[in-house]
Amino acid sequence: MYRFRIQIVSKSALIRLAKLLGILLILVIGVWFLMFQMPGQNYSGQLLPLQEEEITLQKSLQQDIQTIAVDLGIRNITHYENLNKTRNFLENSLTQAGYEVKRQTYKINDQSFYNLAVERLGTEHPEEIVLIGGHYDSAFSSPGANDNATGAAATLELAKLFAQKSAKRTIRFVEFTNEEPPFFQTENMGSLVYAEQLHQDKEKIVAMLSLETMGYFSNIAGSQKYPFPLDLLYPNRGDFISFVGNLNSRKLVRRTIKSFRDRARFPSEGAALPSWIPGVGWSDQWSFWQQGNPGIMITDTAPYRYPYYHTEQDTPDKINFDKLARVVAALAEVISDLAE
């Protein structure tokens, strides 16, 4: 015969359990607000017709990407001549826009590589720099239309838009070299070479925006992937632009996406995440984190959405230039906001 013993939990034990659950709930809510809760109203309606200036921007982006990804094509250390021709194209385009282009030159095995920088000096706080950058090299045997001719072209066209504008803070545009393997997150990564020099010169970067793989969008369910556990929190359709930073860049993520949502009629998602989560540090903002600067990546999420990532099929026909133009046009207003 079995005997069942009924154990009565004491009131003090219940109180301790309730306190523990309360602490866990507070921690969960705290993490949610720290990393995932973003300000502003995310747009979910039908996209409005392009404005005249967006149509002009769309054509310019398309022409730039045609030049970079088709006329020049694969551009990296194994296709060194194409890499230099791309640098020449970007440098000449920036010069024609009225800028004095500053080259940062460094060598790898007796070959020279170049970061290109232009800026509009701030009228009230010139020592405070808002920096926008994208890398112009491509990976392996890929022509790199989306990764990252979109970012390089967006950096170029944004620089053109600001060529005759002024702001309280300095606005700087940089075309980086050697972001892709074998230099990714090594001492020869172009943006790291650049960020280290800024640190040595004691320049003050108040915001760094890395423009990375920005032109592929899909409304198909399941087209958007994430590293766990982000797949439990974000939409599974890749129809948005994302703003991603590390935890130290949380304020910049929130301010940037709030500014974007206030101005753009385009879907957006944002997060400030630990840098060890795969993908969070996969572009040039990582280099600025190493110097303690706030930096974020603006991206279509690259390999988590784009099926042609780092392949020979990364060609301009995969890019939605209508949506890319909307994003870049809105970023111009965001940059103006950050610079004020």
Rank of each mutant, 00 (worst) to 15 (best):
A153I: 10
G238C: 01
N42I: 13
N42F: 01
F228E: 12
S283W: 07
K160Q: 08
S249Y: 03
L94T: 03
N178V: 06
G292Y: 05
Q7M: 13
D231M: 10
K202W: 07
K102P: 00
S287T: 08
A139F: 15
L331S: 01
D239Y: 10
D314Y: 03
R169I: 05
S242E: 04
D64T: 07
S287L: 08
L230Y: 04
M189H: 03
P227L: 07
D71S: 12
T177A: 15
D262H: 09
K85N: 14
V280Y: 05
E157W: 02
P294Y: 02
T311A: 02
E333N: 12
G281D: 13
P49M: 06
E312Q: 15
E54Y: 03
V206L: 11
T301A: 03
K11S: 14
F321K: 01
F217E: 02
T213R: 00
R305H: 06
V328N: 00
L24W: 13
R87F: 08
W282C: 05
M189E: 02
E203L: 14
L156A: 07
Y114V: 11
I205L: 11
R263Q: 13
M189L: 05
G190T: 05
L198I: 08
Q290T: 12
L116F: 07
Q197E: 14
Y2M: 11
H310V: 02
L57Q: 03
S10G: 14
T86E: 09
F33E: 12
L324S: 00
F228I: 10
G73I: 03
E81G: 05
D262L: 09
S242P: 01
L198F: 11
S10W: 09
G22K: 07
A159V: 07
N248A: 15
A329Q: 10
P49T: 05
L47H: 06
R169E: 04
D284N: 13
G190K: 06
Q104S: 02
T315H: 04
G22H: 04
Y234W: 12
L14P: 03
Y106A: 05
W289T: 04
I74E: 09
I74T: 11
V334G: 01
E127L: 09
K160Y: 01
L233A: 11
A272D: 04
P181S: 07
A167T: 13
N146F: 14
L21A: 15
F4E: 14
R169T: 06
N293P: 00
D64P: 07
L324Q: 01
F184G: 04
A264H: 01
I26N: 08
Q164C: 04
Q37D: 10
V118P: 02
I15V: 15
A167H: 14
M38I: 06
W286C: 00
K204A: 11
W276P: 01
D239A: 10
L230G: 00
N320D: 09
R255T: 13
I55S: 15
P274V: 06
V70S: 13
A221N: 12
V193Q: 07
R237M: 11
K85P: 00
M189N: 03
D317G: 02
L17S: 12
P274L: 06
F228Y: 14
P49C: 04
G215M: 08
Y308F: 15
L116M: 08
S138W: 12
N246I: 03
P227Y: 03
K11R: 15
N219W: 10
T67P: 04
Y226V: 06
V28Y: 11
N115D: 07
T186H: 07
